[in-house]
């Protein structure tokens, strides 16, 4: 074990781990929301994420930014970020809507067994990923530099914190807080909680079940779209096949925090990002998945419902 590598640069590993974790957390929200309401693992959610990530790059391209462009000036950077986030959110929400309408709703109407949903989910996931693969000729697509990656914002205890890291972590946290408030305070949020508790009773109380489910997919899509844009900014290059693994990690984060629990997704995402990064430092990057998943198994042994327990944001309170 290489303790020297870890502790000589502990701050660096922490901040990059949190950045990765923030993206996991945003994607994890989509899994957790849909699971909380439908008891369904939406495996196509990784492609909802990919759709947003590609849409942001293509949106910037439409504004005249190619892979080698560097945006400058505070005003235009903010504009590009907002436009990118908007396009990504719309594309992801759209993809999520189509998946729900095509792959899930018809099955729900016929009371299909849970396994059928699982297969249509995997089918939708593969079909969308392959479509992007064929369209991009399976080549990596470079994103423009919107935020200069070497721009250091401030320094804490000898660790440089860059603008990109702050942007990713802060926007992820802001989205989470907004979502938490929305679910707990708004009228639609109450509807979502009601459907999560008992679909049929909620329907009897006059809640339009199908509309609520659609809203859940759209919210998950918006979160995944923003995550996709943040991924573009942070990683800088997108390949059609990256969704699968990132989706798996995000799903893991959701389970780690307690699936169906919004705050759990945040905790799980950040924790997974940190554990992965520390493991890379201690044992070498080839060990990170092994360590991360051993941690997951051990944690679930002691807390089978995840760190914060399983419930859609205090729905049962």
């Amino acid at each position: 074990m290489n303790f020297n590598a870890l502790f000589s640069d502990f701050g660096g590993y922490t901040i990059t781990g949190l950045t990765v974790g923030a993206i996991y957390a945003l994607v994890a929200l989509g899994y957790t929301l849909v699971y909380g309401v439908l008891r369904l693992i939406n495996f196509a959610h990784s492609e909802v994420f990919i759709a947003g990530a590609f849409a942001a790059i293509w949106g910037w391209a439409a504004l005249g930014l190619d892979r080698d462009s560097v945006a400058s000036g505070f005003g235009s950077i903010m504009l590009y970020l907002l436009v990118g986030a908007l396009i990504a959110a719309v594309a992801s929400a759209g993809t999520a809507t189509v998946v729900e309408r095509v792959a899930y709703r018809p099955l729900r109407k016929r009371n299909a067994p849970p396994l059928a949903f699982l297969i249509t989910a995997i089918g939708a996931s593969i079909a969308i990923a392959e479509a992007f693969g064929i369209y991009t000729r399976r080549l990596p697509v470079g994103a423009p530099t919107i935020v200069k990656p070497d721009l250091v914002l401030f320094e804490v205890a000898g660790t440089e914190v860059t603008m990109v890291q702050v942007l990713v972590i802060v926007s992820a946290l802001a989205m989470m807080v907004a979502l938490d408030l929305f679910i707990n305070r708004s009228r639609i949020g109450r509807g979502i909680r009601a459907v999560a508790q008992d679909q049929n009773t909620a329907a009897l109380m006059g809640i339009n079940k199908d509309r609520i489910i659609l809203v859940v997919f759209i919210i998950g899509g918006v979160m995944a779209g923003v995550a996709g844009m943040l991924y573009d900014i942070r990683i800088g290059t997108l390949t059609y096949s990256v969704g699968f693994l990132l989706g798996l990690k995000a799903f893991t984060a959701a389970v780690l925090g307690g699936i169906g629990n919004l705050r759990g997704a945040l905790v799980g995402g950040l924790l997974l990002g940190l554990v992965e990064n520390y493991a890379s430092a201690l044992f070498g990057a080839n060990w990170k998945d092994l360590v991360a998943f051993v941690v997951l198994v051990v944690l679930l042994m002691f807390r089978p419902t995840g760190l914060l327990g399983e419930s859609l944001g205090r729905a049962r309170a």
Binding site: Y13, T16, G17, V20, R234, I235, T239, L245, A281
Partner: peptide
């Protein structure tokens, strides 16, 4: 394609 984020290696 199993890894997209190499921040730990970059730090090293």
């Amino acid at each position: 394609g199993k890894q997209n984020d190499f921040s730990a290696t970059v730090t090293k």
